[in-house]
Amino acid sequence: MKIAVASGKGGTGKTSVAVGLALAAEKSQLLDCDVEEPNIHILLKPNILETEKVEVQVPRIDDLKCNYCGDCAKFCQFNALFVVGDTAMVFPNLCHSCEGCIEVCKQNAIVYEPRCIGEIFIGKKDEIDVIYGLLDIGEALAVPIISAIKKKSIGEGIIILDAPPGTACPLAETVKDVDYCILVTEPTPFGLHDLEIAVEVVNQLGVPIGVIVNFAGVGNDEVYKYCKEKNLPILMEIPFDRKIAELYSNGIHFSLEMLEWKKNFSRLLKKICEVY
């Protein structure tokens, strides 16, 4: 059972929900797919058992074979290759690893070699296996790290994925093969706007959606109206509560101190597992 927890943007309490679900399960895997700003390991402080570099394949040009025809540079849609006079350069950070240049080079001058763009960490906290990744600063492509994280999870039991913020391709990469997607939002115009866009992305991927309203009671009821109209079930409401915020700011999950919430999360988890 794979459940992704997402929201149009960060700061809606998405990570709290993901951690809450993982804590409520007897045994679970928790995947932090926000590789630009992973937070789960800060909240849970898992013991790191294993780290692994994430590599992508990029071309290397053999200057003994290259005749500087420039075909590869002309082909590359991402400007990762530059050929002029008797020089051919590769800009590995621009490469999308499409292998097109290898295909077009008539001299067979191009080979692939690995290049590191970040790291993934596999750790354990009590009964939760925590996997997260970190994109090297200045790198542009998060997707290879996300897929490396997803590959590390063993495909059984409860798997919770904390999706990256935003609605661009890292979100799609995280959600694309999960069984269920929980969208966390807040009852404000910002929350509604971001929810609408997130729903669009997740719908495109054909994944069923449920909504959790965080900071319930602070704003207006537009989010509820929208959910009703779109037939999206509201799975849970978490009220705005200073105690929750204070616990969070100290890195303590509220379900550990406010035990009724642990029950709420396990009930929710059970419900999702039964239906999907």
Partner: peptide
């Protein structure tokens, strides 16, 4: 940006 597009 259209949803799900690469944000470059």
């Amino acid at each position: 940006l259209n949803p799900g597009m690469e944000n470059s």
